[in-house]
């Protein structure tokens, strides 16, 4: 079975490009559109064919796209990822050159979400041990940031034609979710994300959050949660962020332990610390929080209810989070 022949396909792209029909072009450079399922589009060296039908700069896009389809058909997502990156970068240049017009934004949305999809597949196919996990996704995010900068920088154009319209779909969804979820997972596993990384992706809200968790400052933590509530909800990470709270508890209790320098910490002292930080908890609830930390191996020790004391291990009572 075949879809329309490639020559026909190229003519349609040519016409749509000339008439500034971003929607149609976007369909024909998507790996999810119907044409991508047909074998006659899997061409290893499409250069000659494409250049016959299409002018610069759109020819470059289509060449990358067809090469990418070919790589996917060979189940080689590592190469597909390289080609799609080329496609996004070529498109970025075109986008930058187009002053005072935004008809090509649909194309941007399509090629960028395809890039993310392929990057995810490439993550699964990685072979070498030397590569860091998440590398493809992070590099993909870099490419998307390229588009984002152009859109964000397009401030002088009239509202109707501005590229700023493309920002929302682009970055909020693709970059933040990919990167941030990883960062929070890292904190949960006991790693502190690098300030530079957060700075780079313009999510410094998280730096405060990280600081609050590290210090065990639950009051600050609550304040940040409240302030950025809608942001966390919109990104779909509210509940993951909430999970960080248990780490804040651990860090706070560790401080109390260090200050009192005893292996038998009165539950009352822990409760006082919590209350001081604006937490409305009684002794029973404090004990419940400690019980969870012990159960999860974040504190080594046991609770004696009769003495209302947490008896912690003489050795390493607060094991590093990376080991639990």
């Amino acid at each position: 079975m075949t879809f329309m022949n490639v020559a026909n396909y190229l003519q349609i792209i040519d016409r749509s490009w000339r008439s500034c029909n971003g929607q149609t072009v976007s369909m024909f450079v998507s790996i999810r559109h119907d044409h991508a399922k047909y074998r006659n589009y899997y061409i290893e060296n499409p250069e000659n064919m494409v250049e016959k039908f299409l002018p610069a700069p759109v020819d470059e896009l289509v060449i990358y796209h067809l090469k990418c389809l070919y790589a996917i058909s060979m189940d080689d997502f590592l190469s597909a990822y390289q080609f799609q990156t080329g496609l996004v970068q070529a498109f970025t240049k075109i986008l930058q050159a187009q002053k005072e017009e935004n008809w090509s934004l649909p194309i941007m949305n399509v090629v960028c979400s395809d890039l993310r999809f392929i990057a995810q597949q490439a993550e699964k196919q990685r072979v070498g041990v030397s590569e860091k996990p998440g590398e493809f996704l992070e590099k993909a995010a870099d490419s998307l940031m390229g588009c984002f900068r152009i859109c964000a920088g397009d401030t002088r154009t009239d509202n109707r034609d501005t590229k700023r319209k493309g920002m929302l779909a682009l970055v909020v969804k693709l970059c933040l979710i990919v990167i941030i979820k990883r960062q929070i997972m890292k904190i949960l596993l006991g790693y502190i994300p690098n300030r530079k990384v957060l700075e780079k992706y313009n999510v410094l809200e998280f730096w405060d959050l990280v600081q609050a968790v590290c210090q065990g400052n639950l009051k600050w933590f609550d304040e940040i949660m409240e302030k950025h509530e809608s942001f966390f909800i919109a990104c779909g990470i509210y509940l993951i962020v909430d999970k960080l709270k248990i780490i804040a508890y651990r860090n706070l209790f560790k401080k109390v332990y260090l200050i009192l320098s005893t292996h038998q910490i009165p539950v009352e002292s822990l409760q006082t610390a919590l209350e001081f930080l604006g937490q409305d908890v009684d002794l029973d609830e404090t004990q419940c929080i400690v019980a969870n930390l012990i159960n999860e191996g974040k504190i080594k020790g046991y609770i004696s209810h009769q003495h209302r004391k947490v008896v912690v291990s003489k050795q390493n009572p607060f094991p590093p989070l990376t080991s639990t």
């Binding site: 400690v290 019980a291 159960n295 009769q306």
Partner: peptide, 16 residues
């Protein structure tokens, strides 16, 4: 009860 069996683990102590 499951969490408490871990956190209050002791052969001598009782929980009322």
């Amino acid at each position: 009860l499951k969490v408490m069996s871990v956190a209050y683990n002791s052969k001598n102590l009782i929980f009322p």
